[in-house]
Write a protein that binds this DNA or RNA. Sequence first.
RNA 1: CGGGGUGUGGCGCAGCCCGGUAGCGCACCUGCCUUGGGAGCAGGUGGUCGGAGGUUCAAAUCCUCUCACCCCGACCA
Length: 575
Amino acid sequence: MRMSHFVGKQLKEDPKDAQMVSHKFLIRGGYIRQLSTGIYSFLPLGFRVKMKIEEIIREAMNAVGGQEVVMPVVHPADIWKETGRFDAIDESLLRFKDRSDKDHVLAMTHEEAAVHLVRNDVNSYKQLPFMIYQIQTKFRDEARSRGGLIRVREFTMKDAYSFHSGSACLEEFYAVMHEAYMRIFKRSGLKNFISVQSDSGIMGGGVSHEFMSVNPAGEDTLFLCECGYNANREIADGRLPQKAVQSDRPLEEVATPGKKTIQDVSEFLKITPRETAKCVFYTSEKGLILVVIRGDREVNETRLKTHLQIEKLSYADDETIRNCGAVPGYASPLGLDNDKISIVLDSSVAEGSYVCGANKENTHIKHFTPSRDMKEVPHTEASVYTTMEGDLCPECGKPLSMARGIEIGNIFQLGTKYSAPMKALFLDEKGESREMIMASYGIGVGRLMATIIEDNHDDYGPIWPAAVAPFTVHLNALNLKEEEVRKTAEALYETFIQNGIEVLFDDRDERPGSQFSDADLIGAPLRVIVSMRNLEKGEVEIKRRGEKTSTTVPVNESLSKVKGLLAELLSSSEI
RNA sequence: CGGGGUGUGGCGCAGCCCGGUAGCGCACCUGCCUUGGGAGCAGGUGGUCGGAGGUUCAAAUCCUCUCACCCCGACCA
């Protein structure tokens, strides 16, 4: 490709909207342009990188027996009603009507479409297992998109769906896909990524993992241990580092006028928040819920939902709280109307004694000892506190460290979550009808592209790993008005093309500084520079993106040199 | 959805407080000149100032409404 006619110009200044490095370089480099909030066009440069990434994914999916399909982006609401997600999902599912007033949605994921596609074509155990996948557009009407391609509304996702006759088979293939994902991210050039256990949320089902690129600008919080334990905030199960202090003294009221918050009470009584127990009230589809948790801890709502088997959770208002006999600000699990509320005692206060509300205005109680005082109170016990940095690893007991991550992929064991309501059935060996067992697997292609830049750049632009670079060779001709420069560059350009090298030829009459700056933003792994300076010695210069030093080679050896370097670069990302 | 902010040529911005009919840098076009890290000189093209309404002799500027976009938070299958 010649730069003189290449669409997508490199910009000198950072776009004012961009915060993340990848966002700045994607815009400045001429990879993407924004059309609307969270909606981007890909320019030729961006499209080429995207295709490279997709090809890596495609190869990996094919290698584990995946069968590529394409499913629609527009779905009739009917299939989403079959699984209940039409109503279960909030505003992020974009809905609209067609000319005959029929409800439709823009697909945000394709479980329903995949089951629909498969359920009539597969009806025997002999056909199972199999996996289908696609690389397709998704739309999620995110409340807040941000960070360039990191979080968008319209995006390309590789999504895969595997169908099995039994859970052993599912688990086996799930592990194969986990491996495939690790290979994909490694080949793509990510430097610091891990898989973490995650909560499967409304996707439903059992085991799931998220693939996270560790990055301080990431949106997700991770807890990591040197022993290899990794988990996201929702599922992390850090153990409390301090031992609880237990008192034998009886309950004792203490006046705490106007002290409603944990902080106020702690300061007033000259104790730490860790020595208090707080009451958090929620409403849910199963009614009012009270969580008793240590004062310095937050409720992990995901774990609470899982514990109670509920889907919706929101803070209760004061009136609702009073209605069950509690006094907001001074609430206690003791003396409530137990027909109206379900009490969850968090493990953070299962042992020890605490200051707690007295269910009386301006009053708290001391020496609240759940192991003693909650005996007569109906409740369940669960560990629903949010892990904090420094909590102990549930597997090895060492302190957990906290990190941020960008989710670039996920895999879910879905079970029969979708096959059951949509009646994706098959006949087993005994002729009995059974529901297919499913898993789904996603990778955000654009997000992965941005993440690759996050992991591979310098101050001047991306340093694309050869496997995903838009071009592998950037050919600069310094001063095309010099006949010899022009002829040599043109000849090299032709030679590279004929040898199947993806070359971008800067044939513009730009000064060297401009050419080099644009080349940095384009980030091709190799740069070949033709100039009078070297031509006088019959040489051209070859430079690696991201390295200061360069070498010169005789013009007629440049092809083999380039080939050799490319082979070296590409092999370093193979596994 | 809550809080904050911004809309002026392709990009980045000034002008707005204190109304008088739009300016700077980059980019783009022409010519000269220059060629190893975003050169220089000269001359040009391009904007009904996000939109609608209002106040006024006169609105980018003041008022009302509205739309879009950004940041922080909530949400995130």
